[in-house]
Design a protein around this nucleic acid. Structure first.
Lengths: 163, 163
DNA sequence: GTAGCGTAGTTGAAGGCTGAACTATTCCGC
DNA sequence: GCGGAATAGTTCAGCCTTCAACTACGCTAC
């Protein structure tokens, strides 16, 4: 693509197109992460009836003292918007896995609390999920690659969490 | 978590839980890929009105001779289900960016064809997208890390595309 | 104490995705 | 050629996500 440009605004300046190697790396990252997430989500959903999004909510709650957490903290932890989390918690409430409870210290706040049934559902799902993650991720990589993946991921996270 | 298990079925056998390092690597991968995709999608959507999913469809069509492709081939290329692609193409048709055309060789088939308007929309969006990918991915990594990412992604892809 | 502003969370409408059912066409074996 | 299986694509219902209102509470200052 040839473009006639003025070098004023960042994206209007001559685009820094990807070269062939960069294209390959980008496609490999894009496809592999999409396919992997898809696979993990499907395996979990089909064998336990819990989507990965719901699973993350249950995990977050289970790791907290009292198995409860403020809605907005939970949303952050699950990389979810508040609206999305609110809907999701409503649906988990219908399943009897989570209940809402008003927050003592802050009248505006709500606590999401993991029920015993919810914890049991999580306990049942966890072995299935960890086996998927092993099979499709860790079992495919060398120890060095796992380390590279961690460093790479943490580098990107630092950047993405800035301002 | 302690579990009483019979070593018969794969997931019923003692789960191969992740150790602390593996947890870190897994979380880093999970969060960074979610946040990165999210960011790229949002930047593209907000500045061009084209979601990343639509963008991928336009790119796939634009790279093909005649700027047309069979629906199912396009679905595979975009890691999309047929149903999803069918809906997406309908919506792109409404925007006048793609049109459907019956396939000569196979009466069951449909071709999705990129229109001139669709190509123009893609040309306008491409610089924005490449700049996002640079800013949030390539600019954050060393040359070695980009290479590692490629190898890692291609390794996972080989596994995920098996059977 | 109350006005004004910010924060916490929910709701509703609109659009997108999924899986299953459906239509239409082609392929294969006889 | 004809019947049955396979393939291509669409459609529908149900669920999920998003974005923009909206309610309710808390904080600060006058």
């Amino acid at each position: 693509m040839t473009m006639q440009v003025s070098p004023t605004s960042p994206a209007a300046a001559a685009p820094r197109w990807l070269d062939a190697d960069e294209q390959r790396a980008w496609r490999a990252w894009l496809y592999s992460s999409q396919l992997l997430m898809d696979r993990l989500d499907r395996e979990l959903t089909h064998s336990t009836g819990i989507s990965h999004a719901y699973y993350e909510i249950l995990v977050a709650l289970s790791e907290t003292p009292g198995r409860m957490m403020r809605m907005s903290e939970l949303a952050d932890r699950c990389l979810s918007s508040r609206s999305r989390l609110s809907h999701a918690v409503s649906r988990l409430e219908e399943r009897g896995w989570v209940r809402r409870q008003v927050c003592e210290e802050d009248g505006r706040g709500q606590l999401a609390v993991l029920t015993d049934d919810g914890f049991a559902a999580l306990e049942a799902a966890a072995p299935v999920h960890v086996e998927s993650v092993r099979a499709h991720l860790f079992d495919q990589l060398t120890t060095e690659q796992v380390e590279q993946m961690r460093v790479l991921g943490e580098t990107l996270l630092r950047h993405l969490n800035e301002a």
